[in-house]
């Protein structure tokens, strides 16, 4: 029997199609994305002032200067859309609740990769509409420190992609948790609290005091906001930062794969 020369291609092109489909599906909500960018920009301005006040009181705090802090602030706003920092859920959660998940689980192909490709498509669209505008406005109003080297830009791009994967991994686990929990509100609320606080969204993790700071910088949420921002600002050792993110992404995807297997056993074999 002859193996087709490009036996991997059909699978890859399948996920590429899903990626494009995810992108286009969100492109249908352009007005909402523009409105989101507007809100992100307003919040960026408000939060920037608070950070400026802090860094004026404590110049050089945590190795950042005022320009670094302002840049950090607008980056956090830029990450809200693609990384769903405010605990956005996957459509999957709704499908778990309605029981439609059974249809997804018997479909050929991996539910995990399928959802990931779709979510990356969503993130790509929101990056264009909700990440770039707030950053540009921040640059005009306050001045933002852009990386000088091409290598930093490349590392930042990679870091954002892995950040989205980490965010997806967490949201995927939250969505699947409703297979076992009668009421997933608790998990969702917890996820929201952890994500907003421990990602660096509210304040940079570098100014969290003592053990709280050490802990926050080791948790997966740091890979969503703090680490990509540090890569952008040139505050991180690139290889170390990317390795940290990749490790969490791999761990979360592995957990997601295990959870999918368990969910399939529960939903398909036991019938829900």
């Amino acid at each position: 029997m002859r193996t087709p020369p490009s036996w991997r291609c059909p699978t890859f092109s399948l996920y590429l199609t899903i990626f494009r489909y995810g992108f286009r599906r969100h492109a249908a909500y352009r007005a909402a994305a523009v409105a989101g960018a507007f809100t992100n920009t307003v919040f960026g301005i408000l939060r920037a002032y608070v950070l400026i006040a802090l860094w004026q009181a404590r110049p050089g705090l945590a190795g950042y200067d005022v320009a670094d802090a302002v840049t950090f602030c607008f980056l956090t706003q830029a990450f809200i859309g693609p990384m769903q920092v405010f605990g956005g859920t996957l459509d999957l959660a709704q499908r778990v609740r309605s029981g439609d998940i059974a249809l997804d689980l018997v479909r050929p192909g991996s539910l995990l990769l399928w959802s990931l490709a779709d979510d990356l498509g969503r993130a790509a669209y929101l990056f264009l509409l909700r990440s770039i505008p707030p950053t540009l406005v921040g640059a005009v109003l306050f001045g933002i420190r852009f990386p000088a080297e091409a290598l930093t830009w490349a590392a930042f791009a990679l870091s954002v992609v892995i950040g989205v994967v980490v965010s997806f991994g967490l949201r995927y686990l939250v969505a699947l948790s409703s297979c076992w929990l009668f009421d997933d509100l608790g998990v969702q609320s917890l996820s929201l609290v952890m994500t907003t606080f421990f990602s660096g969204m509210i304040l940079p993790l570098v100014i969290f005091p003592g053990w709280l700071g050490t802990l926050a910088r080791a948790l997966p949420w740091a890979a969503m906001v703090q680490v990509p921002a540090d890569v952008f600002l040139g505050k991180a050792d690139l290889a170390g930062a990317l390795a940290f993110q990749a490790l969490w992404a791999a761990a979360l995807l592995a957990a997601g794969a295990l959870a999918t297997r368990a969910a399939r056993r529960k939903v398909v074999i036991q019938g829900g």
């Binding site: 909402a32 409105a35 989101g36 507007f38 809100t39 307003v42 919040f43």
Partner: peptide
């Protein structure tokens, strides 16, 4: 685009 209102209320 209901989210525009958020900028004023939550903002």
């Amino acid at each position: 685009a209901p989210e525009v209102a958020n900028a004023f209320t939550y903002g």
